[in-house]
């Protein structure tokens, strides 16, 4: 998974890529449902602040992802360090993907 910050490149931010191509759209669906925001507003360069998503809604998103993917998202993830949704989805997606690899192993 590689995410490049728009601050570094000046280029448009894109969603991270994972081995499972359905992972990102499923995460985005859950973000939309849990934070009650329009799915169309969920763009890679959007931030939680600009979307008006508060800390409890972030908790609801993470809990929703754990339930949907039957995964455990650990406390030490630095979700607050994400500059935008692309980075946030990158951190969450990596944790979910890693959890699934561990289950398979």
């Amino acid at each position: 998974m590689v995410t490049i910050s728009s601050h570094e490149t000046g280029l448009q931010v894109g969603w991270p890529e994972f081995a499972d191509p359905t992972l990102v759209p499923r995460i985005l669906d859950i973000i939309a449902i849990e934070s009650m925001i329009d799915r169309a507003a969920i763009r890679p360069d959007a931030t939680l602040e600009t979307l008006g998503v508060d800390s409890i809604e972030v908790v609801m998103i993470v809990n929703g992802l754990e339930d949907a993917f039957n995964a455990t998202i650990p406390s030490e993830l630095r979700l607050g360090d994400a500059d935008n949704l692309a980075q946030l989805v990158g951190i969450l997606g990596a944790a979910i993907a890693q959890g699934h690899d561990e289950l398979k192993a």
Partner: peptide, 8 residues
């Protein structure tokens, strides 16, 4: 559920 407990 509030995600305020540490796993570490």
């Amino acid at each position: 559920a509030m995600r305020v407990l540490t796993d570490t």
